[in-house]
Write a protein that binds this DNA or RNA. Structure first.
Lengths: 194, 194
DNA sequence: AGCAGTTCAAGTATTTTTCTTAAACCACTT
DNA sequence: AAGTGGTTTAAGAAAAATACTTGAACTGCT
């Protein structure tokens, strides 16, 4: 079984692969990232699509006041990317930080592009997964403007209980768009009710 | 007073500068690095000479057994570089890790080279500081082969007491070429004697 | 045999990170 | 004017991670 079985299986959930496997794996590099390390930093171009084999990451930006806003959280079998930086190959504005010791696969932009031209299935894979991610982020925007903090928390907890359990509370708060303290209060309220 | 006063003053300890100051500072970028972050990683080219304005770094490599060997430790007014990678502009084999939250100035290889051709004083500065660093590393090699672990510890403690106080013991042990446990025992022995 | 040193494993101490709580405050609704 | 939904600041507690110590068993050398 290939070292890259995990990502190949993921690809095969969306498209079917035959002889292309080797071509695809030839552009992948595998690495291990320790908790707290950044794989993307403001000022540097995001050169890779990064697939999480094991572990968890978040993408966040630091506003002028030094406050962190978590843009996305990803665990196994998700991609972490600063999409704007990646697509335009311009310097990133965000950080991508490992929330746990993690194992990742990376594929560089300059290799993916020609390969997608060549391999239809690969192109399809990225199209579909990107569309999903985009749709997801759209819904998040909506939920942010139309719901109260508590509703956002409930909503997210219901849909992603495993993620809620896994990430530090301040990360979750900055993802859900509220202060850490307020999230702490929401949780306390719930405990007393139940 | 310039934002870059600290490095300019350091340069002026070795050579005299007149009008060149601005040209030099124009290639410097300033950044803040949090404890535990790497500024150099295996596989990536070390593009910069990094001057420590405030904080501390170490350079280490990870052997096949996963053991860390600290190659150098630097504090304020020292440079941290993977020299082999920097000079040849080839991928590094070492990590450079912040041991504290730090403030650094960086000058890229591709800017330094032409500037050294142009500004004699700058060339002199790098020549002298590099020679010092080289001589230092030579002596270290000698001390490593000719002294016992305890002698190396005594020697280093005498010369750099401020560094000994500042870095974690396991870093010092991996720098002095002994196990952490053994260093702990050496220290214990000393305590009882004195 | 004995010294200089290592590895492994378990336990403790210390530091850092994360979470909680309270108080004072702001902006909207009602 | 008062209640709701939220923020900020600051201090303290709890939890987790890191760093250090210790002992035992072992290696290689003289």
């Amino acid at each position: 079984m290939s070292k890259y079985a995990r990502i190949l299986n993921n690809i095969k959930r969306y498209v079917s692969l035959t002889v292309e496997e080797e071509e695809i794996t030839s552009i992948i590099t595998s690495s291990r990232i320790k908790k707290k390390q950044y794989i993307i930093q403001p000022g540097f171009v995001c050169r890779n699509r990064t697939y999480i084999v094991e572990g968890a990451f978040r993408v966040f930006y630091l506003d002028e006041d030094g406050k962190e806003h978590t843009v996305s959280i990803g665990v196994e079998d998700w991609f972490v990317t600063d999409f704007f930086s990646y697509i335009n190959q311009t310097p990133a504005l965000n950080y991508a930080e490992a929330l746990e010791d993690s194992h990742i696969f990376q594929m560089p932009y300059e290799d993916i592009e020609p390969l997608c031209k060549e391999i239809h299935a690969l192109s399809e894979y990225f199209r579909i997964t990107t569309e999903k991610a985009f749709a997801f982020s759209r819904r998040r925007v909506i939920s942010n403007i139309s719901m109260t903090a508590e509703q956002r928390y409930d909503d997210y907890t219901e849909k992603y209980p495993h993620i809620v359990k896994r990430v530090p509370q301040y990360v979750l708060a900055s993802y859900l768009g509220m202060s850490q303290e307020f999230l702490s209060k929401i949780r306390k309220r719930k405990m007393h009710k139940s």
